[in-house]
Amino acid sequence: MTAPPGKAPSDAPPTATAPEAIKAIPVRHYGRYVSAVVVIGLLLLIVKAFAEADLTWGSVGEFFFNDQIMEGVKNTLVVSVLSMLMGLVLGIVLAVMRMSKNPVTNSVAWGYIWFFRGTPVYVQLLLWFNLALIFPTLNLGPIYKDEMTDVMTPFMAALLGLGLNEAAYMAEICRAGIQSVDEGQTEASQALGMTNAQNMRRIVLPQAMRVIVPPTGNEFINLLKTSALCAVVQYEEVLRKSQNIGNTSSAVVEMLFVATLWFLVITTVFSIGQYYLERHYARGSSRQLPATPWQRARQLVFTFRRGTGAGSGAGGGAA
């Protein structure tokens, strides 16, 4: 069945030390050709539909860097980053409370997570925004007193709504990360005379990060997208800004495309950052760190120049 095509091997010199490399005719996968054609055909249909649609593609480009839109992008980034920071700090505190032996702190943390994970962010945002209806003044005793409507600006409502909700999720992620570290690690550091705080900071957390970072990156990207809901509390993030322009210029869908593209740009940038962060915390857990895209590109060029099909197996060493 696998008779070599072409010349018989007998006219090779008899000093055959290694057997001849196999040159078999590969199996043809006709199904792959068919499915590729079908998928490309469907894609072309979609492209055709959009090309023929009643859309002014020019306005997408025209408004992409519009001042109002840029303001909206900035606001989206500000509220997302700040609520993520809030979620992270509060989440770590809640995770520590949740793991403590004190039944009071433990159950308070449990209750917090239960409430904020169990209700929609949309409802939470509306609750914060309308807080002035039930508490007309914010009275913190001798420290602070003000009208609630002055305190609960759209920005504050957005920040509290997103940040407090995020904290509940981050708490669970941090707890899972810390608990994923082998108990032997803590025993070893205790046996060396480290205190609990030193053990947490130097031994447990750096290892927990490997488990914490990937879902946290996902959380952040989710949060970026969820921030579009802040339009409901009058917060001028990129979607609301786009809709403002869309409603006045009758380029409704075009402006939605602008918002869509901006979200794609932001999430792509942060995904790349996440890749490098994960790589950093993978130190010591795998024998060879995965190559960065840059290293892979260089390696590819290098293999082409040498003209050997070395494949993409070996990665570039540690940076």
Partner: peptide, 26 residues
């Protein structure tokens, strides 16, 4: 206290069955 126990342990070395090296350090 935690700190005092830690101080006592400084003078006692321990080697574990499963090594328990810190994997993120050389």
């Amino acid at each position: 206290r935690d700190r005092e126990v830690a101080a006592q342990r400084r003078d006692i070395g321990m080697v574990f069955q499963r090594f328990n090296l810190f994997p993120h350090m050389t």
